[in-house]
Design a protein around this nucleic acid. Structure first.
Lengths: 226, 226
DNA sequence: AAGTGGTCTAGACCACTCT
DNA sequence: GAGTGGTCTAGACCACTTG
């Protein structure tokens, strides 16, 4: 039952952020009892695909807000400030074997390659290398760097209709190459945390490959395990 | 409803690993409909307190197996090998302010302090500093170091009746002091990952504070976010 | 007041495990 | 075959949000 509903959501029948029909209506449409339909909705909500709000309705979860790269780091002020973004380089290129593998596309497919620095309180804190599959992000390839937003995921949604719904982060440690270190105002060889992210849309397509570098000493992350 | 059941489980009415009465019986005991009781069981199962096995019954989740400190690291062979354990030091002491805070006890309370090295393929890989509140672990304080098991959590359950049910890990990054580095066969000042764990029993008491150090370059961790 | 989701009831029938 | 959990039905009533 949940699978049928999931398919309708992933097919884009109700765009992210909009409400589904009422439980009544959906139950009739699928020819099942309301309780059965409710279980399906609850399951999909627990998986993060939907969001249920008492008294208002059931909604397709809107795109991730995008800022939370900072959840891995602690830079002085925990003010929740949105980091300023400066685009260092932007160019179209062909996907290398590694990038193609991460994005799940063929090698040589066109991608948009970005390098950006994110700053807090005027100090550069994170260096990000981003690869986007070009067919989806044509609109951004034509936008002057000055007009880009600080938060990318809402921008992807607005300008390209790409809704990031889920992401995986792989964390490792290393040291900064000289060129990377220069962007962050750190000495070459400084220890760094490296977060490799793949972001996926509603349909499960990988829509962004991003590698973030930050000072290892500012890294901090908490997990609960059971 | 779930709260009442949770209380019975946490009170230890059914020891970890044992089966609860059938849904039928529990529904009668609590004076609710079976469907209601089922929802409660499902909720507690999703929270990791219970485990439901089709055709067999509903069980209080047994203690964590204990080894998974290695899930944060990648040392050559991903063979799933259980690391050998060598206890470097063991002594009773009074809880410092910091240890007391982590364990949720008063400063100066007696604790068992352990230092151990864990090795894979004969090579020292992890250094662990462990603090245990003494009243609970008296049995271990009297056990010769040679008789300790490689996996602590099953040993806590067997010898002390302490079942670790949940833990939080905080990950940070630093460099090894000379004494620490010596245990791991690394140079002083070598970059390391530091995992600060608090382990809790069924009732939510903190029963172990553990800090693990390992080579930063072997650190690797993956998360999915939604 | 109307419409939404949240909790609950009292059953039926199926799938799995164990002996 | 007896006992367990898994899925489903067809309702009732409550709590929350909005006009």
């Amino acid at each position: 039952m949940a699978a049928a509903l999931r398919a309708r959501v992933q097919a884009g029948e109700w765009p992210p952020g909009t409400a589904l029909p009422s439980e009544q209506a959906l139950a009739v449409q699928h020819g099942v009892a309301m309780a059965t339909l409710r279980r399906a909705l609850e399951l999909l909500a627990s998986q993060g695909l939907l969001e249920r709000i008492h008294g208002r309705g059931t909604f397709v979860r809107a795109a991730m807000t995008g800022a939370p790269m900072l959840r891995f780091f602690r830079f002085g002020d925990g003010s929740g400030e949105v980091p300023a973004s400066r685009i260092v380089s932007r160019r179209k290129t062909a996907a290398s074997a590694e990038v193609a593998q991460r994005l799940g596309i063929a090698r040589g497919e066109p991608v948009l390659h970005l390098l950006r620095v994110r700053s807090l309180g005027g100090r550069p804190r994170l260096l990000e290398e981003i690869h986007l599959p070009l067919p989806l992000f044509q609109a951004l390839a034509e936008t002057p760097a000055a007009e880009w937003d600080d938060l990318f995921y809402p921008m992807y949604a607005q300008r390209c209709g790409v809704h990031v719904q889920r992401a995986t982060d792989e964390i490792g440690f290393g040291t900064l190459a000289a060129a990377q270190a220069a962007h962050l105002g750190l000495p070459a060889g400084h220890p760094c945390a490296r977060v490799e992210r793949r972001a996926y849309d509603l349909a499960g397509r990988c829509v962004e490959a991003r590698t973030t570098f930050g000072d290892a000493h500012a890294f901090h992350y908490a997990v609960t395990i059971t």
